[in-house]
Amino acid sequence: MRIFSSMLLFGVFFTSSLAAGTYALHKTCTDEYPRLRYILLEAQGMARLATESIENWDEMSDELKHGFEFIFERRSFNDGIQDEESKEEESPGPRVTETPRMFRTMVSQIFKRVDDFQETDWESGEIHIYCNEDRWRELQDDEQYDDRIRRHFPNGSIPVNLRNSNRLPNDRLWIDRENGYWHRGPPECSHSSTLFGRYEDTPSRGPYGITITWCAKNWPHGQRFLIDLLLEQEDFSTTTIDNILSQHLSPVFLYGLLLTPRFDLREMTAGWAGSKRLSAEEALINIGSHVLFGLLSFLNELHVFIDEKHARLGYLVEKHD
């Protein structure tokens, strides 16, 4: 992976000030999943808490501060004293010692942009969010070429080897009937492990316009709930932060918002174990790293933290004064 210098990263994140972003929910979401708005608000709440925590660094809890340093500054929970297994797993990337304030500012600004997102009407939305892909269908053979091209074929008939129906399944063209997008291969939600389909938009909605689909059919029905409604039932002696990431929907939607062009971040790795393999510079542009800290900031408000005795595996612990 390419490593960027701190000053270059600073330039990437702060080239200009941006107006607040907007998103709009399609009726496939509002009709079938009316509570989805609460999920999005919880995702934005994570971003708000992360921003406030970083901006008040000196007042941040030690546990959350250690989490930030572990994710973004490549410092361990035990001040660099690691067992042999940890040494093998963690990245040899640079530990940040000279510019922690700059890194904190970068992370804070990303979260602030997420918190600033506003829901709007469909016509005005920068991000269009669908909750299924029923709008897609495989392109019919007679739709592939218009008359200007077809007339050059013998008898105006598309040769057999060029017909969409004769291509391999992953090479066939599909069309989004509502938006007119073409896609090679089945739409992304057809893959059972995919949680978001991401489709680049035309410039009609500005430079950050994009259409994303939450693959609702790929998300277990029993796991569509808010974090703060379920944590009362958690047994933290056996729960890791990766369990929370995989079983709650708001971190998934925080990930989805960070996928959009406004942030220009990358999908390098996700989850607690994966974060240990990144250098500090890589963590700054990795979506999964930001989701982790957003979730830690939210859990911090609920008095739930990474258990420093078992930090390598990301186990959680509940503490009360």
Rank of each mutant, 00 (worst) to 15 (best):
R172K: 14
Q144N: 07
S192Y: 12
N164K: 00
R135E: 12
R177Q: 09
Q140Y: 11
G185A: 01
C131M: 03
Y145H: 10
C189P: 13
Q140R: 15
Q140L: 15
S192W: 15
R177I: 13
G156P: 02
D176R: 00
I129F: 07
Y130W: 05
F196R: 01
P186K: 06
P154A: 09
C189I: 14
D146S: 04
E126N: 02
E123V: 09
G197M: 07
D134V: 06
E178Q: 13
Q118H: 11
G156W: 00
D171W: 07
Q118F: 06
T120E: 08
T194V: 15
P169C: 05
W136H: 00
C131L: 02
I127T: 03
P169G: 06
G125S: 15
N164Q: 02
D147W: 01
G185K: 01
E143L: 02
C131K: 00
H183C: 06
C189V: 13
N170C: 13
R184K: 14
D134C: 07
R148C: 13
P187G: 03
R148V: 15
E119Q: 10
Q118N: 12
E126G: 02
W136N: 04
N179L: 12
Y181C: 07
E123S: 14
S193F: 13
G185S: 02
Y181T: 12
R184G: 14
D146Q: 04
S193G: 12
D171P: 05
F196Q: 03
Y181P: 06
D171H: 11
W182N: 13
D142A: 08
H191D: 15
I158C: 03
S124V: 03
R151H: 04
P186F: 07
R148Q: 14
Y181R: 12
H152S: 09
P187L: 03
S190I: 09
I127N: 00
R172T: 09
D147M: 01
S193M: 15
R150G: 02
S192K: 15
